[in-house]
């Protein structure tokens, strides 16, 4: 065989092999360490991680035209324009990040307690020198700055989600307005239950402060809780107040620079179901430490900043 023929043959074989790999390789996200996965048997933990398959979905909402995609009469201008977006597979926290994990991070010297507002009647913080009371450790951490959130995720080996990842995790692919569907139930939905008359009267979606994840009903399509209400959740993106970032349609990660970092999900301060829709967006000074803010982390996904 001539050298040229051999070269062509090798190239062809390589091309076929490469195409086969591309065709059959199923992208999977880098998982978190085994003890952190919700499928490792520790499903009583709310800060374990759930696998979310990659997908394509309509991100955002608009209130301009009922005939156009993504119509939502309650949508604000900064929730749109809706766009088709793809996200790579990733793992995400099943619930909002717990006090216990931040304490571990701080004790390891990787997180700074100064990044958490530790005082006030709504604070969920447990001082480092206090005994490890499990019910206190499992509460969602609030009053944390963006840096504190980022550092905690890095301590675990992950990062904060992008807005696209967060929204996909909250709503899946069917365009729902809330994690549980399209009915404007409140964060503590009315139950037709004679033992819960007080809950039945709670029509305004008010909470009296941050709740435990175990008290948050109505998970998202991927089994996540607390995606609507409880605590606003930091995302990794800079926030673009004039609408969704005009990035590419695959794994967008927001503008390159900014002054405020994005937040999603609404919080216990909400006064109506409209405030808790999955497309509601906000931004805050990354150094702010408000008592209605928390976060959850992701592993895997696209290679984002």
């Amino acid at each position: 065989m001539r050298k040229l023929d051999l070269a062509v043959l090798l190239l062809a074989v390589g091309a076929v092999a490469g195409a086969a790999w591309w065709r059959f390789h199923v992208p999977t996200a880098t998982p978190p360490p085994a003890p952190w996965r919700c499928d490792s048997g520790k499903d009583a933990r709310w800060d374990c991680f759930v696998s979310v398959p990659g997908g394509t979905f309509l991100m955002g909402a608009q209130a301009t035209d009922a005939k156009d995609p993504g119509y939502d009469a309650d949508a604000s201008p900064n929730e749109g324009p809706p766009r088709i977006v793809s996200v790579a597979p990733f793992w995400i926290g099943r619930g909002e990040m717990s006090v216990g994990v931040f304490r571990e991070c701080a004790r390891a010297g990787k997180c700074d307690v100064a990044d958490v507002a530790t005082e006030g009647g709504y604070s969920t913080w447990l001082p480092l020198d206090a005994p490890d009371v499990p019910t206190s450790l499992s509460r969602p951490l609030n009053g944390v700055s963006w840096k504190g959130a980022r550092d905690t995720c890095a301590f675990l080996g992950g990062r904060l989600p992008t807005e696209a990842e967060w929204e996909f995790a909250a709503r899946g692919t069917d365009g729902r307005h809330w994690p549980w569907g399209n009915q404007p139930l409140c964060a503590s939905p009315p139950k037709d239950d004679p033992f819960s008359r007080a809950q039945r009267d709670n029509k305004t979606c008010t909470q009296d402060g941050p709740w435990r994840m175990s008290d948050m009903p109505n998970p998202s399509p991927f089994g996540l809780v607390g995606m609507a209400g409880n605590l606003w959740e930091w995302v990794g993106d800079w926030y673009a107040p004039d609408g969704l970032p005009a990035a590419g349609s695959k794994d967008p990660s927001g503008p390159a620079t900014g002054e405020t970092r994005g937040q999603r999900g609404g919080s216990w301060t909400a006064s109506s179901p409209a405030d808790l829709r999955v497309t509601v967006r906000g931004g805050l000074d990354p150094e702010s430490k408000l008592n209605d803010v928390g976060f959850r982390c992701v592993f895997g996904g696209a290679d984002v900043r």
Binding site: N78, T206, P241, E259, T269, S271, D275, G282
Partner: peptide, 16 residues
């Protein structure tokens, strides 16, 4: 204060 904090929360985040 509930109504006020809800309003301020929306405003502070929509246009920080």
């Amino acid at each position: 204060l509930r109504t006020e904090v809800s309003r301020l929360s929306r405003e502070a985040r929509a246009n920080p």
